[in-house]
Design a protein around this nucleic acid. Sequence first.
DNA 1: TTTATATCTGTAAACGTTTACTCTTTTCTT
DNA 2: AAGAAAAGAGTAAACGTTTACAGATATAAA
Lengths: 333, 333
Amino acid sequence: MVNIKDVAEAAGVSTATVSRVLSNKPRVRAEVHKRVMEVVQSLGYRPNRAAQNLRSNSSKIIALIISDIENPFFQSVSRAVEDVAQEQGYSVLLCNTDENPEKEKICLNLLRDENVAGVIFSPTRQAIENLTDSSFLEMPMVIIDRHVSKLDVDNVVIDNVKSAYTITSHLLGHGYKRIAGIFGIGSTTGHDRREGFMRALKDHNIPPINDFIKYTNAREEDGFNTAMKLLQAKERPNAIVTSNSLLASGVLLAIRESQMAIPDDIALASFDDTTWAKLVEPALTVIEQPTYEIGHTAAEMLIKRIQDPARSNREVVLNTKLIIRQSCGCKKH
Amino acid sequence: MVNIKDVAEAAGVSTATVSRVLSNKPRVRAEVHKRVMEVVQSLGYRPNRAAQNLRSNSSKIIALIISDIENPFFQSVSRAVEDVAQEQGYSVLLCNTDENPEKEKICLNLLRDENVAGVIFSPTRQAIENLTDSSFLEMPMVIIDRHVSKLDVDNVVIDNVKSAYTITSHLLGHGYKRIAGIFGIGSTTGHDRREGFMRALKDHNIPPINDFIKYTNAREEDGFNTAMKLLQAKERPNAIVTSNSLLASGVLLAIRESQMAIPDDIALASFDDTTWAKLVEPALTVIEQPTYEIGHTAAEMLIKRIQDPARSNREVVLNTKLIIRQSCGCKKH
DNA sequence: TTTATATCTGTAAACGTTTACTCTTTTCTT
DNA sequence: AAGAAAAGAGTAAACGTTTACAGATATAAA
């Protein structure tokens, strides 16, 4: 592999000059600049990243720590992050944590070892605590999806309370009174959505039914099991809100299994507009999160922070959108 | 940050010894080993990866090059790769190429710059050509999803011809004669699936209808457009096979838009068992690919190759499974 | 006891960059 | 035209590891 020394020799200059040319530093004659660039071209020189990283303590890698790449929410986010990164000459390192605080810690340590330029992170509540008294925050970081106003970090979120309020209210507007909510455990997100759910009930003067308000892992299986229990109860709910698409598909399966009709026997509405929300029948009424935009914004913010670590923190709250289809009881068109 | 020198001093040994202890080399007294490890612990020393990388020319990063992380097929694959990597102390670098040969090249170069330990790659046909006369193959590499028997690389695939033959035959078994196929362009996969499709027609003595055999980009939108054209033709097909889930959802949308009933007006079957295949009604008959297993196998093969570059190449062909639901015309249970 | 061998450990040179410092040359001021 | 300032380029040290080589000590063999 050709190195900077080879280039320097071939161009008849010192390695310092080559380095200056390559990093577009001033103080180098136009003629020399050109000559060096030509040699770089003809030799096909590409700088050794490890050496650069070692010397200057920073890589061109940004990390994305998410709980599960198989969650459609994060797919779109990661796609956006990738796009921005590629555009700006960064690569993306991926970490799944499965909402497991232990894994989160391992991951953060690893990223520090790798000297990543920055981190985009969707932490568990646990991790948010840990973050405070660790040195991880020395890495440029932007936190997505989860709310961390107390921490001194950049943050990209949606208004979960409001969104949950909106979708719950919509359901209540149809007259459902026995309404259940299934929320993801362990994240601030699930917590906030429950909050919005409760407020909507209150504002509509519907007394909440404790047995109908569930926390569970955010997986299809758990959605299914939780919903089955709900549906088998003597007094079952006539509407369900779920806090993400994995739960929703679980619930949907449970409803099918129970041979019930949506929305007549039971209405359903969920967070996240996945591919299939419009494909099932009746189509699913959802809160659409601007997933791509979340990733995009986060990546851009991160890169800005990398470039200017002293920059003051921002919290960006993006808007969600209620997409009304038929699972809530609305008619088509 | 504490470095190896600090550890050496604190333990009263040389850096060489510390290094030997940390990499579990022989030739170091048990007592010294213990002492060093204790110091490492108490100082919280973590080796600088950049320095290791520079010195020994290899990182603990494996790269995954795929065309699109939003394709459900790759989600599961990447999840598997991540799992294996994490287990073995590697991290995963992600690259989207959008089936764009230009991007593929940029990506490969970048990975070489980063000194990745190895690459898992799903290349376009174009890239397979380029691979031959480039030096990229010097990186440990395993190619997934796409068939590359001519190249001297590890390869994990399914039998696309056979799988397409199976699902097409199943459809033909229902008596559909006017059967259309929509295949992804640019990959060997789409090509092979078309091949299997054709063979099934031939073996069933059904003359292929040229206008019914389409290549297109593997995106929902293209699936929709292609299907719309197909459905608006005077003599429209009464069954469609699609070569992946993105195309399938596009086709499904087109069928809905055209107010046709599945399977009575038109049957549908596709590759890839996504979340929603079982959620739509009628549920979708599919060829299930062992996506997680593909990723898992690939990652394990890659790590083996990294550890032993001289190892002879293998081609692993994994089995697919026809999952019969109702979109093909079969009855439930 | 002497010599040969095996085991343990240290010294110092790499790996390929970037950059502080220095020296030389050019350009600007007056 | 002289001196000051700016621009251009080189020298060499540093970043934190690994490892070839050599030196030292312990063990075994004669």
